[in-house]
Computed example of a mutant assay.
Amino acid sequence: MSLIQIENHSDMNDVDVIQEIIRNRICFLEYPAGTTLKETALAEEFGVSRTPLREALNRLRYLGLIETRNGVGTVVVGLSYEEITQIYEMRMELAQLIGKLSPNKITDEHEEITLSLLTRAQRQTIEFDIQEYFAINHQLHHLIYDIIGNTSLKEMWKQLYFQSASSWYQVAKNTTEEVCHSLIDELTDLVTAIKSRDAEAVGISQRLHIKYGFSRIQALSSNE
């Protein structure tokens, strides 16, 4: 059973569902780097033919989460520290473009979602739940994704978020209290920006907190 399953499958087809479940397993290290994904076993698990399964795997390959190796099969990709550094550097640069490249209009719904996520994050200080923590992070990602208007920026933002997710999961497992308070700070800043309907402020906030996240990854790496 995956740590975090998708909340609502009702409006998703088989390919979407399979992609998201496998993606979550990769992001949350249920499938760590080097894991070989067996098509036959996965197709049997999901109760589908290989056609939708292969389409889901192709999407994950496009995201850079898996690759095909001769003589081995489909393998979960492992990132070097240098590659993780480059991903975070790019994420910080992209964040600054959120409010500059034709952002979508910030709505009352965005505000309601952000306030709800903040409330959920604050509950984590009472009883931390790693599954809930990452559910909040995932929904925060989708919120920012929805505000981004530029199509190319959206795709790059999504790809880099999922490529960096497993690295951040490792940090969260080791510093639960710190990352919980960091998430609250991020959402508090985001509430202010969204209440002001200021997409540029949203981007500035995201850059700040992505930079913080990378600093924690650096600290964890230096202690290993």
Rank of each mutant, 00 (worst) to 15 (best):
E55V: 07
A56G: 01
L57E: 06
L57Q: 12
L57P: 06
L60G: 05
R61M: 10
Y62P: 01
Y62G: 00
G64E: 11
L65E: 04
L65A: 07
L65S: 07
I66K: 06
I66F: 08
E67T: 10
E67S: 09
R69K: 15
R69I: 10
N70T: 09
V72N: 04
V72T: 14
V72C: 05
G73Y: 03
G73P: 06
G73M: 09
T74H: 05
T74E: 07
V76R: 12
V76W: 09
V76L: 10
V77L: 10
V77N: 11
L79R: 15
S80W: 11
E82D: 15
E82G: 07
E83Y: 08
I84Q: 13
T85Y: 12
Q86F: 06
I87V: 15
E89T: 09
M90S: 14
M90K: 15
M90R: 15
M90F: 06
R91Y: 03
R91E: 10
R91G: 04
M92T: 12
L94S: 05
Q96Y: 07
Q96R: 15
L97D: 10
L97G: 01
I98S: 06
I98N: 01
G99L: 10
G99D: 08
G99Q: 07
G99E: 09
K100S: 08
K100T: 08
L101S: 05
L101G: 00
L101K: 12
L101A: 07
S102R: 11
P103I: 12
P103H: 10
N104M: 03
N104E: 12
N104Y: 01
K105I: 14
T107N: 00
T107R: 00
D108M: 12
E109I: 14
H110K: 01
E111Y: 13
E111G: 06
E112V: 13
T114S: 06
S116K: 07
S116A: 09
L117W: 04
L118Y: 03
L118G: 01
L118W: 04
R120F: 01
A121Y: 03
Q122E: 15
R123E: 13
Q124F: 04
T125A: 05
T125Y: 03
T125H: 03
E127L: 14
E127G: 01
E127D: 11
F128A: 08
D129H: 11
I130M: 11
I130R: 04
I130V: 14
Q131H: 02
E132H: 05
E132M: 10
E132D: 10
E132W: 04
F134R: 08
F134C: 10
H138S: 12
H138Y: 12
Q139F: 04
Q139G: 01
L140C: 03
L140V: 00
H142N: 11
L143K: 01
I144D: 04
Y145H: 11
Y145N: 02
D146F: 00
D146T: 02
D146N: 10
D146L: 00
I147M: 01
I147Q: 00
I148H: 00
I148T: 00
I148P: 00
